[in-house]
Amino acid sequence: MNGIPMEHGLILASVLFSLGLAGLMLRRNMLFVLMSLEVMLNSAALAFVVGSTAWNQPDGQAMFLLVITLAAAEASVGLALMIQLYQRFHSLNLDAASRMRG
């Protein structure tokens, strides 16, 4: 065993990212949309860590910390919005909140 090629790590990140993206585009339930976003952020973080370990540099992990912070902030705000959505429409269907049209 000669270690893992960097491309494999990045491909794993791409697969996770594509899955998250597909979920984002497919789902109408806001909970699932938020979770898809988490998956996407997580895959981006994975790519950073892969880079960091491949080049043996700690900067990528510092970036990973930033991504985690961002994910936490995003999750808290997103969930608060979701609660509001549920209170107003009694549903988590995002299409119910599509009143902002051109």
Binding site: L24, M25, L26, L94, D95, S98, R99, M100, G102
Partner: peptide, 18 residues
């Protein structure tokens, strides 16, 4: 024509962006 694209559905915006 452009008004039709602004349907207020976040998913379609995301799809177009992707």
């Amino acid at each position: 024509g452009l008004v039709r694209t602004q349907n207020g559905r976040m998913r379609s915006y995301a799809t177009v962006m992707v």
